[in-house]
Design a protein around this nucleic acid. Sequence first.
DNA 1: GTCTATAGAGGGATAGAC
DNA 2: GTCTATCCCTCTATAGAC
Lengths: 213, 213
Amino acid sequence: MPPKSAEESKRRLVAAAIEVLRTDGIAAMSARAISQRAGVAQGLVFYHFGSVTELIAQACVTATQARVDLHREQFAEAASFADLVALAREVQVAEREAGNVSILGQALAVAQTDAELAVAMRQALDLWREPIVAVSSRLLGAGSPFSGLIDAETFADLLMAAFVGFELTDAVREDGVDDRSFEALEVVAAVLDGLGPVGRRALAATLRRRRTR
Amino acid sequence: MPPKSAEESKRRLVAAAIEVLRTDGIAAMSARAISQRAGVAQGLVFYHFGSVTELIAQACVTATQARVDLHREQFAEAASFADLVALAREVQVAEREAGNVSILGQALAVAQTDAELAVAMRQALDLWREPIVAVSSRLLGAGSPFSGLIDAETFADLLMAAFVGFELTDAVREDGVDDRSFEALEVVAAVLDGLGPVGRRALAATLRRRRTR
DNA sequence: GTCTATAGAGGGATAGAC
DNA sequence: GTCTATCCCTCTATAGAC
């Protein structure tokens, strides 16, 4: 059998790492488990990546990049809070299917006490952050009735944190995906989108009161 | 040396488990590491708890119970959204100090693929959930201008998810605790609390439009 | 570049003395 | 109830053949 190419081996290992993380969890991650699923020798993990941690790090970033690209057009189209919630719901379903958010959550947990993995997780989170900040800027930036209320970057960070936390907490519930959460957010979005001139004036007045206090 | 009591050994093991989880992370959890820090024989982990996982599970629930009790009075006093945000900030600081939210996050990650641990994590989350639902009910329930807008339980679940996600994502950032997030929430809370009659009417009108659509 | 084999450490869990 | 000692397994990482 001719030796496979280096790129092919690395690709298979990265794909296998995601698969193992997805199906068996972070506790089951090992060079043996990953290389076996990849169909390559265990030693290649260290030859190509140096350590298991580094393989996991690269796998998380690579997988996240692919998932973000998948939703890029949808992010570009969202133009209201209702759109944002609908998008969040679609992304939640799609990413739960692919297991990517769960992967991020599990890797994040390890990254709490692993500086090397923390660097990679920051990169992965930044990949999601970029399109989310773009949407948030459209909804909260100049020209919107919420301009100056909340910083788009801060809003995006809160959204992402909630997303990760939702995925982790939801998995330990017995009743599966909690549709009520998204329904509640839909109501909030409808209110925010539907605020007429009167509502906006009241909002502006409240903000003025707060600023001059 | 006289043998210590069973209760004392169990107590020490539980405390040591939390300590190891807090300082070295979930990846370093082992019967050896825990028993060494507890100053007892390694075999006692299995004698008293049956398995390392079960010890971790009980430790998480016990530790969470203690932390929740610590904040109970503050929860009882919160009567506005501003109070809620201020409370969240205090809890965030206190729990970061104690590392309890980080512990929950890491245990939750493992619980994604460990049914036994998932049961314990549901119990731990429910301990936080109870006082949070109580506060949420006061803010969103009958008599409030938001009555019927969002279910208190759903709101509480979202809050908790955001809290866990915030702790996990914040830890991998280079700039530490992001105060801007809480400042942003303070603004939102002030708006919600400060909505006068006009704002509430506008809100009610928006909700009516949505319901009859 | 890929493979097999293995060293060396650490882990879960149990047996049996006290 | 607690301890020490141990079995057996899995893990990371490396060495060396091809």
